[in-house]
């Protein structure tokens, strides 16, 4: 606090001192969270990076094997299948979830009657037990007795998809449930973001003769940019790491049609006790996440500029 009082004094401090002061204050804000984070999360994560170059199996020593894991990875067709499936899931899940949750947030930000109820309802999928979610959706997708195919049949579609029981349709099915489940979560974040847009901007835009679409395009979207950026990063990383949803819906099947990287990591580690190899798959997943995030950062910065 003494430092800031000094800052307030009329004479401008030397640049070096100001820098040091800023650093100290900055650190004082960050440290309470960062210390806990560094000790409890960063250290094990660094250990993981080391382990990815070893043959660690939890019980024994971790012998350094250099790039052996990496070479194995390149020739591991299951890994490539999992990678392809993960990218498929992410590539569809992220844009669809973001678009729909934004639309939902806009809808629920209005003064429709009963909007409070709908807001609560929209959040329910995220809260409902995932076991129940999987059970109900799997029943809906049931090829013979499920309501979805019964509807399709009633609509005259002769050969409705097999959904979770078919290798072609299992991933779309999982994505549908993934979007449905995550909608409420991101809707809430968009809703919070919408509140930060000053109402005056809308009034000004209206006065300038902007229509609904133009207001959305020129006021809402730019105003939401920090939120959108946050959501796109979190949603992308979350999709690349998707795990429990797949596990309860299809367990990666039929065959390997919905096997994703996180699940493959779990299989290699906890089921087959090849933690060294599992660690190197994690590092690859990590690198993918980081590069996608970096791209998002750059795009975001360019838009802001």
């Amino acid at each position: 606090m003494a430092l800031t009082k000094e800052l307030r004094a009329a004479r401008p401090p030397r640049p070096g001192a100001l820098r040091r002061r800023n650093t100290l204050i900055g650190l004082s804000f960050v440290l309470p969270n960062f210390i806990g984070f560094a000790v409890l999360t960063l250290v094990p994560v660094l250990a993981l990076f080391y382990l990815s170059f070893t043959d660690w199996n939890v019980f024994g020593r971790a012998n350094w094997t250099g790039t052996a894991n990496l070479e194995r990875l390149l020739n591991d067709s299951s890994f490539w299948t999992a990678l392809r499936n993960t990218l498929y899931y992410t590539g569809v899940h992220v844009p669809v979830t973001m678009a729909l949750s934004l639309a939902l947030a806009l809808l629920l930000n209005t003064r429709l009657r009963g909007v409070r109820f709908f807001r609560t309802a929209a959040f329910f999928p995220y809260v409902t037990s995932i076991v129940a979610v999987a059970a109900v959706w799997n029943m809906m997708f049931s090829p013979d007795s499920g309501p979805i195919n019964q509807l399709l049949a009633a609509a005259g579609i002769a050969d409705p998809p097999g959904w979770t029981t078919s290798t072609d349709w299992s991933m779309p099915s999982v994505i549908i449930v993934g979007v449905w489940r995550d909608l409420g979560f991101y809707m809430l974040l968009f809703l919070a973001g919408l509140q930060t847009i000053p109402r005056e901007l809308y009034e000004a835009a209206t006065i300038d003769g902007a229509g609904a679409w133009q207001r959305f395009r020129h006021v809402t979207l730019p105003g939401l940019r920090p939120t959108t950026f946050f959501i796109s990063v979190i949603c992308t990383i979350g999709s690349l790491k998707v795990f429990d949803l797949i596990l309860v819906m299809t367990q990666g099947g039929p065959g390997q049609s919905t096997l994703v990287l996180s699940q493959y990591i779990y299989q290699k580690g906890f089921v087959q006790n090849q933690f060294g190899y599992a660690s190197s798959i994690s590092v690859v997943l990590f690198l993918i996440c980081v590069s996608v995030t970096l791209v998002q950062f750059l795009v975001n910065r360019r838009r802001n500029a």
Binding site: G162, T165, S166, T167, Q251, G252, G253, P254, G255, Q256, S257, L259, Q267, V271, Q272, N273
Partner: peptide, 20 residues
């Protein structure tokens, strides 16, 4: 055994679901 089990589980779901 654990690795083979994983492989055969994939085969099982593919066969029984009629996908393969």
């Amino acid at each position: 055994t654990a690795t083979i089990n994983t492989i055969l589980t994939d085969a099982h779901t593919a066969i029984m679901s009629g996908s393969s």
